[in-house]
Simulated scan of single mutants.
Amino acid sequence: MVTNKIYYGVITEILELNYNNKGSIVLFKCDWVDNHAQDKWVQVDYLGVTRVNFKHLFKSDEPFILASQATQVYYVQDDLDKDWCFVRSFPHP
C-alpha cells in the first residue's frame, strides 16, 4: 500500500547545481518534522487545520528535495501551545 504523506519542513540551505551552462537544478536542504507516527507531531484536526511541532525533527539520509517538489507555506505559532505551529498556505493566483 502506498501512502502520500505530506512533509513539513524549514529550508536550511539552497543549492544550485549548474551543468556547464547546459542547465541547472535547484535543491532545497530541509529540516523535516517527524511525520512517521501518525498524528503525533503533524496533526490535522476535524476542520482540516494542520499543526506541526518543530521540536521533533527526523534524521534523514535524504534531506534534499528538488525546488519543483516544494510548496510554499508559512507557520504561525500556536498561542496556546508554543511548541506547535499552524500551517498556512498562500492563495494560488
Rank of each mutant, 00 (worst) to 15 (best):
P63V: 03
V33M: 11
G9P: 06
H36Y: 03
T3A: 03
S60C: 07
N18T: 14
S68T: 12
G9I: 03
L27V: 09
D83F: 02
D81L: 01
S60R: 06
I25A: 03
A70R: 05
S68K: 15
C85E: 04
N20Q: 07
K55S: 10
V33N: 04
H92L: 11
F90M: 07
Y46S: 14
F64P: 14
F54L: 09
W32N: 10
I25T: 15
W84R: 08
V76Q: 13
E13I: 05
N53R: 10
Y8I: 02
V73E: 01
M1Q: 01
Q72V: 02
E13T: 08
Y19A: 12
I25M: 04
Q43K: 15
H36V: 01
D78G: 07
L47P: 05
F54V: 09
D45V: 05
E16I: 14
H56G: 07
G9V: 00
H56N: 13
N53F: 06
K55R: 14
S60I: 02
K5M: 01
W32F: 02
L47D: 15
D83G: 06
A67N: 06
S89R: 13
V2T: 07
K40Y: 00
W41D: 07
N4P: 07
P63E: 07
G23C: 03
H56P: 06
L57F: 02
D39E: 14
V10A: 06
H92N: 13
Q38L: 09
L15M: 14
N21P: 09
H36I: 00
W41H: 11
D78R: 04
S68I: 09
S68Y: 09
R51F: 02
Y8F: 12
V44Y: 00
I14T: 15
V10M: 12
L57I: 09
A37G: 02
L15G: 11
Q43D: 03
D83A: 08
L17V: 12
K40N: 10
D83R: 14
Q69D: 14
S60E: 07
K82I: 10
D39V: 00
H56Y: 13
Q43V: 12
V33W: 01
L47I: 00
V26Y: 00
P93R: 11
V76N: 05
I11G: 08
L47H: 12
L15K: 15
L15C: 11
L80W: 01
K55N: 14
Y7E: 06
C30I: 10
D81I: 06
Y74P: 03
A37C: 08
F64I: 11
G9C: 06
D31K: 15
I11D: 03
S89V: 04
Y46V: 09
T50F: 00
T50H: 00
Q43M: 05
V76L: 09
A70F: 01
T71W: 02
V49C: 05
L66S: 05
